[in-house]
Design a protein around this nucleic acid. Sequence first.
DNA 1: CTTGGCACTCGGGAACACCGAGTGCCAGAC
DNA 2: GTCTGGCACTCGGTGTTCCCGAGTGCCAAG
Lengths: 337, 337
Amino acid sequence: MVDDRKLAVLRAIVEDYVSTNEPVGSKALAERHNLGVSPATIRNDMAVLEEQGYIAQPHTSAGRVPTDKGYRLFVDRLSQVKPLSGAERRAIESFLAGAVDLDDVVMRTVRLLAQLTRQVAVVQYPTISNSKVRHVELVPLNEHRLMFVLITNTGRVEQRVVELQEVIDDNRVAHLRAVLNACLDGCGLASVPDMVADLPERLPAEDRPVAATILSVLLESLVDRHDEKIVFAGAANLAGADFTVGLRDVLEALEEQVVLMRLLGETSDLSALTVRIGSENPYTGLQGTSIVAAGYGSGGKQLARLGVLGPTRMDYPVTMGAVRAVARYVSQILAAS
Amino acid sequence: MVDDRKLAVLRAIVEDYVSTNEPVGSKALAERHNLGVSPATIRNDMAVLEEQGYIAQPHTSAGRVPTDKGYRLFVDRLSQVKPLSGAERRAIESFLAGAVDLDDVVMRTVRLLAQLTRQVAVVQYPTISNSKVRHVELVPLNEHRLMFVLITNTGRVEQRVVELQEVIDDNRVAHLRAVLNACLDGCGLASVPDMVADLPERLPAEDRPVAATILSVLLESLVDRHDEKIVFAGAANLAGADFTVGLRDVLEALEEQVVLMRLLGETSDLSALTVRIGSENPYTGLQGTSIVAAGYGSGGKQLARLGVLGPTRMDYPVTMGAVRAVARYVSQILAAS
DNA sequence: CTTGGCACTCGGGAACACCGAGTGCCAGAC
DNA sequence: GTCTGGCACTCGGTGTTCCCGAGTGCCAAG
């Protein structure tokens, strides 16, 4: 039985605990929020909430602290995403507008998010498999080597050096380049393997070995980048917050691309604002932390995700507002470029 | 007056303090190292060393701790760089050998160094101004836009999107590309501005506005990257070590490209192994840390620097050995590619 | 110059008492 | 039935005191 007042009490507990970082007691609650009832009544409610697992006592005779389950209820039913102030929105806009290329967009985004939320920001590079080929370039470096550059419509550039078995002159390179571009231009990266499967047969016999070498490198570069690149910033913000779990574990997780990847990405719905609270998180070592993430991408299609990581005890409405806003602005920027 | 025995005492103090992280007293010294004299004698020596500023007492009636000046003397005169073990060398080699491009080399290097030294590793991307142009590519994106790509001999790729005022067809792009490459191929980046200064005049009048736009972007991309890119890894290693100064300051410094840059780069001699100890370091907030850095680069020429940052109380011989070894191997890898 | 002896210092840990915020429970009021 | 004031109880955190021992400086003798 969870009536309205109990929910109000839970909300008050979460809010107070988030702002003070100290277990909150019945008396303080009655004073700071006008719930219209006495501390004793609140105590009764708290006893019920505790029994149901929404709050807990660090030890007897201390105030209550929200549990992960309590935060979850708070996020789901008791709070609203808090929109940013006008000044903040303008700051985001002007800060992101100055970006010169994709790297720059990502770097600015992650810093912005870290600064805005005063927490650790994490940004995944746009997933290559959702992008399309905009151009393929072959650049001869010397007789036996050429550099292969793949440019996608998200502005991403993949480069590889290809070692060739035989000498190849500029004309043949130009021809290969033309064939490749004709074949791949505008084609989704996911379908590249299909498109190039029969390509060698359509070339003069002499060019086939070279083409095969290049294609293998091309395909490899696609697979390779399946381990998506992820960057983070704002680690300094961890220093202030004291984690129940060691700071070391958190820092280690942050440097593990794979872990970060799954933190952001392991969700079915890319577009929604997802919140993962404390133990909902699959990784030990990140038990005391929550993740707020959102998808972003150009043209309505979600390409990748970004988010922040902070202590479970975070201001969810504000954090969610910041993440959502940044995701939207980045999407705009990407769509425009 | 610093006789040999006093130096031996200082060395013993540094070694013991580094390994135990506790102020070291005269008795312990006499036991652990066979200096052939009694604790009382050592006390006298210690009193002299303290007076000269090489060691200090955290408080009366505690052991001695090396000062920055003491570490400096130790590094300069009392220790030798410790070579890596064969196993470590092989590990480095095989780990770096798998790199596919410049980004990958840098990323692997920084991780390797962090793991090897158990400290924070910092790697600067090869300085573009020491590189040469290998190829310039212009890729039409649509009628009003083209992507400009600059490839250097260090494998670095700079890309910019150029917005044009007028429609430009493929033939004119091809022509421009040819002219640009003819003019710039093999030319050092530093001399690019000179080389292109009179280029517009050598083109047909109709192409001049377009060329000017492209060139301005080109020049800007050179200047822009003067704020060199720097990456770090191993922040988790900071969690263990307790700094006299706050961990937060260190993390903040690490995320400030400019600060890192100067930490690594502010030295005249690129090739030497440089060590900056505690307060020798210009930045408050990094007082309790030391930096060990070395230059690296392909073909005997130093292109950039790499190093590690750790508590002043670090094992200098081992750290220096690791930094030197990694710098050498990276140079080899770069030279080969 | 080195050494053993000796008195002195002082940080850090253990033991202890105390305070007060906070709780649970109960009887009475609305 | 629900709320409220009262009351006894708990217990973490803080401040105090005390003591120990590592370490020192100094001095006189070898």
